[in-house]
Design a protein around this nucleic acid. Structure first.
Lengths: 195, 195
DNA sequence: CCGCGACTATTTCGTTTAGAAATAGTCCAG
DNA sequence: CTGGACTATTTCTAAACGAAATAGTCGCGG
C-alpha cells in the first residue's frame, strides 16, 4: 500500500484496489478490500499516511490517503531492509499435469493448449501496457517490469508448447508403467531415495 | 491432498507435508500442517480416504491415510471438472523493481544479481530431480513437470540477466524525470489513460 | 545403558488473507 | 426521473499461514 502511495498521488481505498489490480496483476497479488481498508487504517495509526474525508456528513465519506514523510521513510527502509523471499508460484495447470495419471490425456492436451493461448493473450496485454507507459517520464521502473512481464508470458507460452510436444510420450510411458503394475512400487522407491 | 494420495501409498499427515514440500515446491504451495490435518479429517468424513491408527494406546497415535475408490473418483472428477484459474505469481523482487524509484540503484542491482543466482540454483536442483525420476516407471508426468520447472528457472535466470542490462538505463531515465518534477504529473496522466 | 539430538507425528492458536456480498452514494444516458 | 454502471466502504465467514507446543521414536556415542 505504501509503495503504491509513494508515487505521490492522493488515493482512496477503492483507487488503490483498482490500481493494484491493474498494475501489479502480472507479478503480484490483487489485495482484497478488507485487507486494503484494514491496512490503510493501520498506516494512519502509524503516521505513515494521512487521510482526508472528501464528501459527506455521512458515516461512509470518501476518504483520500496521502503518504507522509514518515511513510516515505518507511518505504525506503522496507526497500533496503526487508528480506526478499523466493517468489511463490501457484500453478494449477502444472499441478494437474503432475497428477496427469488421474486425467484423460485429451483433457490434458486441451488444457495445455488453453494455457498456451491464455499466456499469449497475457503477453499481448503486457506488450500493450509497455507501449502505453514507455515514454512516460517517471515510469522507467514500472515499464521495465512490464517488459519483464511480456517476456514472462512469452516464455510461459513456449514452455506450454514444449510440454504439448512431450505429452504423447509421457502418456505412453505412463500406460506402459501401469500395465506392469509399477505405480505403487516406484513411488515406494522414490520415497526411499528422498529419505 | 487427494492428488498426492492418488499415487496409491498409505501416508500420514507428516508424510504428506514432506512430500508436498519436496515435490510441489517448484510450482505449487507448501501446505501448513494445520491445513493438511484439517483436510485429512474432512476427506475421511466425506469417505474419500480411510485412516488406520498404527501405534498407540495414546491420544496421538500415528495415523496412515489411504485413498478410497470414492476418493479416486473424486480426484478424477476434480481433474476433469474443476476450473483452472490463472496461475498466481507473487514475485517480491519484481515488486521492488516496480517500486525502484524508492530504492538505491546499487541495492536493486545486487538484489537482481542475487535473484539471478538463486534462480540458477533452483534450476540445478530441478535438473537433479529430473535425473532422479526420469527412468522411474509411473513417474512420467511428474518428470515432465520437473523438466518444465528446470526450464522455468532457466528462463527466470535469463530474465534477471536481461533486466540487469536494462537497469542503468532505467535509473538514468528515472533521475531525469525526477529532475523535471514529472513523477506526480505523469502518474496523473497514466491514471487518466487507464480510466 | 542412558541420555541427548535428530527426526517423526500431531495439535493448537493467533494472525493474515481471501472472497463474496451488503450497503449506499454518484453520475449519466435515454 | 429512473435504471444501470460505477464509485466507495464495510462486514462477515472461511481458508490459509506460520510458529510453537507436545510428545513419542530411534540411533549413537560416552
Amino acid at each position: 500500500m505504501l509503495g503504491l502511495l509513494s508515487f505521490g498521488e492522493e488515493l482512496s481505498g477503492y483507487d488503490l484496489k483498482k490500481w493494484a489490480n491493474w498494475s501489479l496483476r502480472f507479478f503480484y497479488w490483487a489485495p482484497s478490500y478488507s485487507q486494503i481498508y484494514g491496512e490503510l487504517r493501520k498506516l494512519e495509526d502509524l503516521g505513515f499516511a494521512v487521510s482526508r474525508v472528501v464528501n459527506k456528513d455521512d458515516i461512509r465519506g470518501k476518504r483520500l490517503y496521502r503518504i507522509t514523510p514518515a511513510g516515505e521513510e518507511a518505504v525506503a527502509r522496507w526497500a533496503a531492509e526487508a528480506p526478499v523471499e523466493p517468489a511463490v508460484l501457484k500453478h494449477g495447470v502444472m499441478l494437474r499435469m503432475w497428477l496427469g495419471h488421474a486425467s484423460d490425456p485429451a483433457m490434458l492436451r486441451s488444457m495445455l493448449e488453453q494455457h498456451r493461448d491464455e499466456s499469449e493473450k497475457m503477453r499481448v496485454r503486457a506488450a500493450a501496457d509497455v507501449e502505453g507507459s514507455e515514454h512516460e517520464p517517471g515510469w522507467a521502473f514500472p515499464t521495465m517490469v512490464l517488459r519483464w512481464s511480456e517476456r514472462y508470458y512469452a516464455d510461459e507460452r513456449d514452455r506450454a508448447e514444449t510440454m504439448l510436444a512431450e505429452l504423447d510420450d509421457a502418456v505412453r510411458k505412463q500406460r506402459r508403467a501401469r500395465r506392469r503394475g509399477g505405480a505403487k512400487r516406484s513411488s515406494e522407491e522414490l520415497r526411499q531415495r528422498r529419505a
